[in-house]
Amino acid sequence: MKLIVNGQSHEVAAATLAALLVELDFRGSWLATALNGDVVQAKERDRCWLTEGDRIEILSPMKGG
């Protein structure tokens, strides 16, 4: 299945957002995720099913002003 993760195209086997994070090696309690513009909380990721062409954002803390 082809997905857009942080703006880049990925061909993945993962069926859920939780599995996607593992497959692409995103680890850490500090990550925030969104699917097609909607926030997906950490506790909901294993029930968040993915479909072809989904856009996923994976963010983490960064310095800011």
Binding site: N6, G7, L24, D25, F26, G28, W30, L31, A32, E57, I58, L59, S60, P61, M62, K63, G64, G65
Partner: peptide, 22 residues
């Protein structure tokens, strides 16, 4: 202090390190 959110890279730990420091 003010902080932000940005895209993480696969395998990246910079966000976690920054957050620990804060």
């Amino acid at each position: 202090v003010t902080v932000s959110l940005r895209r993480e890279t696969a395998g990246g730990k910079s966000g976690g390190q920054f957050w620990s420091l804060i």
